[in-house]
Amino acid sequence: MEVSSLAIFFVSARSHGGQVITIDSLNKQYHTPRGTYHALRDVTLQVEKGDIFGIIGLSGAGKSTLIRCLNRLEEPDSGSIVIDGREITGLATHELREARKKIGMIFQHFNLLDSRTVQGNVAFPLELAGWPRKEIAQRVAEILDLVGLSDKAGSYPAQLSGGQKQRVGIARALANHPEVLLSDEATSALDPQTTRSILELLADINRKLGLTIVLITHEMSVIRQICGKVAVLDRGEIVESGPVDAVFSAPSSATMRLFLEHSTLLQGSGAGI
């Protein structure tokens, strides 16, 4: 008990380079009629402040479950998650809602509200957080400028391209000054060129705001382009993790070697991406 409160104290001190996310022995099982399925087994990870942390794995490896546990869209069975000094896994429902307001999230299918304009979508989290109307308008303009969509403020999502929709998603996630941004396969529905520009935007935001980003992906190119650290998830277990350079130059897990082989193959053949 004392040890864990001490840990929380240090995390909340938020010194540069300190840990902003600590995941400790996280477990999650799904009970299906065909038997028990281990989505996560003893997952332990630390993410440092200001880092872009990538989690890569094949489909079904548990990536999505893991990132969704971070804001408890998915409830872990056991283990603990501490984000910015707050033990997420120990929060009551109303405390969790408050904590979620400081954890931005972007999604593969954007999940924008079709009945609201771009402006209205970005204002949404601020309305939920109880911002005064005037400040909302100001903040929305500011953040739309940051993602390069000022001219689309009055458009509806149906009028936007996939890349523009994800920019709205990013603006919405950043509006309420989050501590952390979670990215759930945010570029998987986009073409390679749009993917690159969205990743550039994320890297840019990371630099400008010092925002910590955790992203999951099944694409090596995403990790290569923007991540500082990477963890490899295989059948619910972290099989390898570390700085991207180190992991790429000397992969120790079979999954990572498979990923690297596959991506070099693509590059070597000069596939018209």
Partner: peptide
């Protein structure tokens, strides 16, 4: 996914009904 996004932003069930489901 829209409901989930609202949940991730800390919306209450009532806010989800009023600001997501009905509109």
């Amino acid at each position: 996914g829209k409901v989930e996004a609202a949940l991730a932003m800390g919306a209450t069930p009532l806010q989800i009904v009023r600001k997501v489901l009905i509109p």
